[in-house]
């Protein structure tokens, strides 16, 4: 609105000057701008600059906010990715030889990682589920699955994890991971699964 009134004021001034120069031959006059209108123009100019500055400031703040929000979102996502990675490490299965329940040496590293995760997240509680392949006797496999879950629990406890944080269960051969009748399926089905029972939000890296 201010810039419109400024234009009108200038236009009127110019018309007055033109009318004066056309009539007769008066002495040349240096046009003197109306003091009031000059001040108004100056005020308007200043107002306009301030407004522009305010707009720039506002945009800058909005941009800063947007960047801050993005950074926050990025860091939450990164945290979630880290948490997801920790969760995946925690959930990684270990496997067993036929009719055996001892932890294999090639699985000890995986259990060591779980020890570290449990130590870094003191509220975390887990359940270990022992599973078998289909070759053994159905009911005997419940006892064997129990031994498989217990041996992983014993490993974690012997590395400093409080036994009360670890539940165990056995599914025997009732929940195969892979439906097949060959060694490839059987070896994948002879396993311990690890699931979070509580304290699993925003898991910290060890």
């Amino acid at each position: 609105m201010k810039s419109v009134s400024l234009l009108l004021a200038l236009g009127l001034g110019a018309a007055v000057i033109a009318g004066a120069s056309c009539g007769g031959n008066p002495p040349p006059q240096t046009p003197v701008p109306n003091a009031d209108s000059a001040a108004a123009a100056e005020r308007a100019r200043q107002d306009s600059a301030a407004a522009a500055q305010a707009e720039r400031d506002r945009q800058a703040r909005a941009e800063a906010d947007r960047i801050a929000r993005q950074r926050e979102a990025d860091s939450i996502a990164a945290l979630a990715r880290g948490s997801e990675e920790v969760r995946n490490t925690l959930a990684a299965m270990i496997h067993f030889d036929l009719d055996k329940s001892n932890v294999r040496s090639d699985d000890m590293g995986m259990l060591d990682q779980k020890v570290a995760i449990l130590q870094a997240n003191p509220n975390l509680r887990i359940r270990i589920g022992g599973h078998c392949d289909e070759r053994g006797s159905d009911e005997y496999n419940l006892a064997l699955g129990n031994r498989r879950a217990q041996s992983a629990k014993q490993y974690l406890v012997s590395h400093g994890i409080d036994a009360s944080r670890i539940e165990t269960q056995s599914w025997g051969e009732e929940r195969p991971l892979v439906n097949g009748h060959d060694e490839s399926a059987w070896s994948q089905n002879r396993r311990d699964e690890f699931e979070v029972t509580s304290g699993g939000d925003n898991l910290r890296r060890p």
């Binding site: 419940l142 006892a143 217990q150 056995s170």
Partner: peptide, 9 residues
Amino acid sequence: FSRATEEGT
């Protein structure tokens, strides 16, 4: 019945 615990079944 059979009961499976930490000590076995």
